[in-house]
Design a protein around this nucleic acid. Sequence first.
DNA 1: CTGAAAGCGCTAACAC
DNA 2: GTGTTAGCGCTTTCAG
Lengths: 345, 345
Amino acid sequence: MARSQRVTLRDVADRLGLSANTVSRALAGKDQVSEATRDMIRAEAKRLGYVPNSHARSLVSGRTMVVGLVITNPSNPFYAALISAVERQCRAAGYSVLLLVTEDSEDNEERAVQQLLRTSVDGVLGVATECRSDVWDGLSGAGIPVVQLSRDIPGRGMDFVGIDVESAIHEAVVRVARTGVRRIWLLEEDLRVSTVAARTAGFRRALDDLGIAHAHSLVLKVPTRRTSGATLPWRPDDAYALAANLITPGNHPDLVVTANDYFALGVYQAIRECGLAVPDDVRVLGYGDHPFAGYLQPALSTIRLPAEEVGTAAVDLLLRRIADPDRPRTSTRLHAGLVERQSTG
Amino acid sequence: MARSQRVTLRDVADRLGLSANTVSRALAGKDQVSEATRDMIRAEAKRLGYVPNSHARSLVSGRTMVVGLVITNPSNPFYAALISAVERQCRAAGYSVLLLVTEDSEDNEERAVQQLLRTSVDGVLGVATECRSDVWDGLSGAGIPVVQLSRDIPGRGMDFVGIDVESAIHEAVVRVARTGVRRIWLLEEDLRVSTVAARTAGFRRALDDLGIAHAHSLVLKVPTRRTSGATLPWRPDDAYALAANLITPGNHPDLVVTANDYFALGVYQAIRECGLAVPDDVRVLGYGDHPFAGYLQPALSTIRLPAEEVGTAAVDLLLRRIADPDRPRTSTRLHAGLVERQSTG
DNA sequence: CTGAAAGCGCTAACAC
DNA sequence: GTGTTAGCGCTTTCAG
């Protein structure tokens, strides 16, 4: 049972006294074959358990029906949702998904691109690791369309689908800080990527609009810890460590904005431990609307990211570009809205 | 720039006045080629940007260097971690990962298997949807090794790597229910899969060992809601709805065990809302040790699942089986231990 | 050490 | 309608 040779077109053809070609056309549904033979072929193919070899097909057709998905970290709930949506949409269109994880390392990213080139995927959806990186050019150069997800590498001429992070943060901070807020902190990830830049920009613009002096505010980078090669989600601990050192009853911000909801968990703890309360003493605004956000005490106000929509739109865009490589480039930024709960008063 | 033909072995060979064959051997590192030509070939290949075509290679070699990963839901943190670990381990061994998502639907599972067959992957890691399903036999029948992940289909003769769920629950419940606990509930997922069965069995065995009459306990199924085709993580809301209906100040369990930490979020809320307290009135034990568990108020006691270890072990096992199809079957159950925090007193 | 030939499984040209 | 031929890009015989 071990070395059961795979059934090929020829096997089906031989059994029926036909040519492989006819079988191919019959199974492909081409109309150059009689009803009778077609049915006969279909039946025999099924009986023998014939399964077409996608590699042989790709070799001649030049298409693989595979899409590459390059993600930094599947344990990040946003990316997890993205993976789900992308896979579902690809599946619906008959495409398979080759998943490559970069763990935010440029080495891995480069290897991923190489892998994609070898597999000659029909298209790629990718979250870029660095803001200015040219590893992706190899794909474009080989005629493989790339849609950048979530993080934008401007000027590289690639399609982009992501979130309007700048506006989202701006809008949310202005809304949440309306009254009596003078000192605001932003707890940011320590990554040089466009989303971090956009959050920071939106934050600063909100400060301006609120008439808050930048001197009264702070953008803090929570160090990214990598644990022995493992891809971890952001660690509440790291945000806690940072916040616990800086927040005291006598000296604390009125509002802390975090780059993700995990950081907010750490901030909650830091605030609690020094005897302060959310939101009375310190308001907290998260980012991402993770499933637990609404169940914290107090419930966390946060920004809901339309991850599914991003994934779906990105696949749609990629498929359209595959169909028409010359169509104009697109850059889509979906809106992310504030979910107001108790943590912002 | 659009139709840039890919560089092939022949291109490199022609440029150098050699045969494609020689180039192939040089690049494959075979020792039947002189140092000089090898270097020359390598240089030229690099200069031209040659990338081997994996499909052509697969066609002749019969190997694809692709592993199929069949997962029910990437947004489930346990599976997300599994995906990370599997991808990393595969990458380290030179394998790519084809990701198929089933959303716990048998249809999708069957299509996934078909896809895997077409791609003729070298091996498959899969979380089975139903406890008794023969869709996977197609793979084994085609000589493609399958390692079952997390959920076990007994008797099908496939390798298995998962968690010793039964013992984990038994051990944890016995430990947590030592004193003064008479009424225990288990909030379970409404799925007919082996992990649910194992949790229930471990729970019942714990009851026996504790001398608690089964009449005083309850196994409740939280209905699985599917929202318009979207793959969602378990919903705290659903657990909340169930618990809120059943828990009253005058009539409540002493301990609630949940099938995942999300359910625990809903249970917390139900308990709070009727004026009871965790853990004084009701203890709560979660499952999965999601990142937020330790940051809840009170911090949630839960069972930590070694997701990364499962993924790594599964890949190792699969690769060993690929190398030796006749090796004896293996069934590995990793230990999952209780993390005691405040919610269990 | 290198080249020529064959063929992996399939589909696109052409014949008939 | 159906068969024959050729070739996708690569590796593996087998010659030289």
